[in-house]
Design a protein around this nucleic acid. Structure first.
Lengths: 253, 253
DNA sequence: CAGTGGTCTAGACCACAAT
DNA sequence: TTGTGGTCTAGACCACTGT
């Protein structure tokens, strides 16, 4: 002891912990396996629970762990590749897209969206809610804003709200010519409503994909889709689900 | 008082705090302005410093705040739109791309990268480091992995490492025909080296953009670019830098 | 019910930047 | 040196999930 004490730059404990845990995950745990609880782990490493939690939080952020209140901490499977490419340049709701309509109401769009739609900030638009499921798990929740002007022929026959109404709006959208679209990705934290759809706590990290759909020189619709950042990898090319592993997996049988 | 005490679902303090602060930022602070220090703020809201910090952390994650040790907490400007589209289908280093070569060494690629390159896990490849600057601020750090087989004519004349070597490798890459590329975005946390380039602390949230370059049926190079998640919005369309504001800005004069 | 992760407190000390 | 944010502690209680 004492011979290797050249630590000029003292690494934070939680950072070192994270490294140690990460290596342990690679070599000693299988996907889905549950870890010891936080109090035991903290004791085992000789740190306060808050410090241990700081390390776990980072590992969860990186998609290595999954924590559920009342249940425990489990080793997460590799992130799911979710295709987000603008392949067909299709409208949302085109046949075979990955989304499922949930609801539709009329409401004012948030300022940032009204800005993109070039509508008045208080103008009521159609707000569709859709969800996207992959491998049986919900991966994204979307709010799709459609100005009334984009679906002029929408009949009053359909229900004023609900999933049926949402499908009606999407159907009307298809009648427009789609000139192109435009996409951005940024980090955000889940609002309470999105968190519920995604089976996460409010504030959970999400990747927010904002898409603008152009038709006849104007922005005909805006989609704000929030993907679970812990479980998703957004893919834009033609190779949706290549296995990316962090380390050699334990062999099966 | 007491008439509105119907809170069936008690909101966490830090969540409520975040909302309050967020609204204050919209209405009472200008970009670049410095907030009161954490101890004062915590006292003002009647919470422990750790709780206040939980709220500040979320706001920083959302790009609303910027915190620097020894300096203070400032109101962040809107996120910068950074173009990441695969427009020209060009090789990295093509004339006019946004990157600046920093260094080049030979090293073994990490397992996940070796996998994509279809090289042996311990095979030495060229590892280029580049950085990307936007509006005077570093926004991304990249590691570009190039197998020796992709640049067979690389001469020994050039320096064995350093920026000049990096440019030489890029120059050789241009000679290959580029069949296409393939991109993925996911959330990560900055490694120590990337954090240094990005002027952030290790562990800071980053958007990791993985690009595979295909040539003649094989993966000729792999790029792993880490973008500052707090300050960047990755854009894929043709509208790189539309202003997205969270709320009405205070008027300038 | 018992056990888990989530929230919160009131302190302490450290690393860094500006003065 | 002063003041800032970053790390860390040793507790406490709450909300949720399972049995």
């Amino acid at each position: 002891m004492g011979t290797t004490q050249l630590e000029a730059a003292p690494e934070p404990k939680y950072w070192h912990l994270k490294t140690v845990l990460s290596e342990a995950l690679d070599s000693e745990f299988a996907v889905g396996e549950i870890l010891p609880n936080e109090r035991d782990l903290a004791a085992r490493f000789g740190v306060a629970r808050a410090t241990l939690r700081q390390a776990l939080e980072q590992l969860e952020l990186e998609g290595r762990l999954q924590r559920r209140r009342g249940v425990g901490t489990t080793v997460a499977p590799p992130r799911v590749g979710v295709d987000v490419s603008a392949t067909g340049h299709d409208w949302p709701g085109a046949s075979g897209d990955a989304w499922q309509a949930v609801d539709c109401v009329r409401d004012a769009a948030p300022a940032a969206v009204a800005d993109m739609l070039e509508t008045a900030p208080d103008e009521s638009v159609h707000v569709l809610r859709r969800t996207r499921v992959s491998h049986g798990q919900p991966v994204a929740a979307e709010l799709l804003y459609v100005p009334a002007a984009s679906v002029p022929d929408l009949t009053a026959i359909d229900a004023p709200s609900g999933a049926a109404r949402a499908r009606a709006v999407l159907r009307e959208l298809q009648r427009l010519g789609l000139d192109g679209q435009d996409r951005a990705v940024e980090l955000g934290s889940a609002r309470a409503d999105d968190a519920k759809e995604l089976d996460r706590l409010p504030g959970a990290p999400v990747l927010v994909v904002t898409t603008r759909y152009f038709s006849e020189g104007t922005t005909a619709a805006v989609s704000m889709a929030t993907y679970r950042a812990d479980t998703c990898r957004l893919t834009f090319g033609d190779t949706p689900d290549v296995e990316i592993h962090h380390a050699p997996h334990t062999q099966a049988s």
